[in-house]
Computed example of a mutant assay.
Amino acid sequence: MTRRPLDWLIFVSIGLVAGLLSGLFGVGGGILIVPALVLAARFDPRLASGTSLAAIVPISLIGVVSYAATGNVDWAAALLLAIGAIVGAQIGTHLLAILPRRAIQWGFIGFIAVVVVSLFLVIPSRDASVELNLLSMGALVLTGLVVGVLSGLLGIGGGAVIVPVLILLFGASDLVAKGTSLLVMVPTAISGTFGNARRRNVDIGAAAVIGISACATTALGAIAAAALSPLVANILFAAFLIAVGVQLVVRALKRN
Rank of each mutant, 00 (worst) to 15 (best):
S125N: 15
F170N: 11
G159V: 00
M137P: 03
A128M: 04
I112D: 09
G144Q: 10
A128T: 07
P100D: 06
R101I: 08
H94D: 03
V115R: 00
A160H: 13
A128H: 03
V122C: 02
L119G: 12
I91L: 14
G158A: 08
L121M: 02
V165I: 15
I86R: 08
L80I: 08
P124H: 00
F108H: 00
A139W: 07
G110A: 07
L81A: 10
R102N: 13
L99C: 04
D174E: 09
T93P: 05
L166G: 11
F120Y: 13
V161H: 03
L81M: 15
S151R: 03
Q105V: 14
I86T: 08
A113R: 12
L135F: 10
L168P: 03
T180E: 01
V161F: 12
R126Y: 06
H94V: 10
Q105R: 14
L81D: 12
A139C: 05
G152A: 12
F170G: 01
F120V: 08
I91K: 02
D127G: 00
V130P: 00
A128L: 00
L169P: 04
G171E: 01
N133K: 08
V130E: 00
V163C: 13
A172L: 00
Q105C: 09
I162T: 14
D174W: 04
R101Q: 13
L145P: 00
A128E: 00
N133W: 05
A177G: 02
G84W: 14
A113G: 10
R126E: 12
G107R: 01
E131A: 13
A139D: 05
A85R: 10
V116R: 02
A89L: 11
G148H: 07
V117L: 14
L119W: 07
L81E: 11
G157M: 04
T93R: 07
V161L: 14
A128N: 02
T143Y: 06
V116G: 05
V149R: 09
K178S: 12
